[in-house]
Design a protein around this nucleic acid. Sequence first.
DNA 1: GGATATTACCTAATATGATTAGGTATGTCA
DNA 2: TGACATACCTAATCATATTAGGTAATATCC
Lengths: 192, 192
Amino acid sequence: MAKAGLTEEAVLRAAIAIADEKGLNQVTLKAIADRLRIKTPSLYTYVDGLPGLNNLLAIYGLQTLRNELAEAAVGLSGRDAVHAMGSAYLRFARKNPGLYEATQSVNKWQDERTEKLSSEVIDLVGKVLAAFPQAEKDQTHLIRMFRSICHGFASLDRNHGFGMPVSVEESFFLAIELMLAGIQSEYCENAG
Amino acid sequence: MAKAGLTEEAVLRAAIAIADEKGLNQVTLKAIADRLRIKTPSLYTYVDGLPGLNNLLAIYGLQTLRNELAEAAVGLSGRDAVHAMGSAYLRFARKNPGLYEATQSVNKWQDERTEKLSSEVIDLVGKVLAAFPQAEKDQTHLIRMFRSICHGFASLDRNHGFGMPVSVEESFFLAIELMLAGIQSEYCENAG
DNA sequence: GGATATTACCTAATATGATTAGGTATGTCA
DNA sequence: TGACATACCTAATCATATTAGGTAATATCC
């Protein structure tokens, strides 16, 4: 009986692979154990059951998303920063569909770490939107609009909700463009 | 042994109730059977297992959504119609969270009926957006933007993704408003 | 009104997966 | 070399989905 030398990270990696290949609901302890060539109960050494594993997935997904959003906006400001961050968001969701899915079920568990990571993502969005002249109070509205567009596109795209043979990236770019145009027309030119 | 006199519709109603009360992943044949005071295998008389039930949920959800969207836009046009349809979308998702969730997993099964219903929903959106002067090609982009905002708000709201003590309805209204302002500023006033 | 067919629900059994309890073999270190 | 920790295991239990086939209530036909 050779020891596989597993770690929490190895289990997480296997889970991510299954999630991205077959969807989050295919991430079972059985499937992970099979992939790692061990028996299911052995996994309990590394993760706290299926709920604990889902939490790990959410944390890792949010960390990755936060890092990629932050990196995307480096050195950019204004419209460019918003577009870059939006593109990074969509790219992350497409490249890591299972992991992205995991980040969405976060708020069911009220974990301290996921709460903090979610805040950090929202703060990043807030920063790139802060360049636009909007009433203090509307900051939350605008963050919500941006997040909804990003998540809406990511989610519908993942569920094959976009059937037309038209580039999703192009649609997404235009959506961000119209959002920004809307902000500028509401708050600057036609104010009042 | 008294006969309960069940029907497919009764099973569906029980499933909807559980989905809306406890979430779609709590819709198990066991839970439905318990609620109807019968044994699990008896359900196979009415529905085609759990996959068949999920399909029924998706169909019923899409039908309801389509009807409510259509009704919301009756007698309205232009901005009013778009706002009314958006509000109806969000209202449906909030009032029937489990049913709404079911409509999202539609495209996994490629069912003829769900495909048709999805098209009908998209057509409705296309109709209220058609009042705005946009390039023919951009029609798809705008429909996608509207759907993404609606679904993004609905989904984030359902997952408690909006933590700030700011009205979600107000955020949503502003998002639609900015989308429309963006469309008008891009296509009419500042064209080119 | 009684024989028969259908309906509506049941019990029994199997499969998959999560989880707990507790065992065994392998490696580390005094 | 022997004690112990580690890493993985088997065995057992529970929950749920599903299939097979049985029984009692109801509807139908003569």
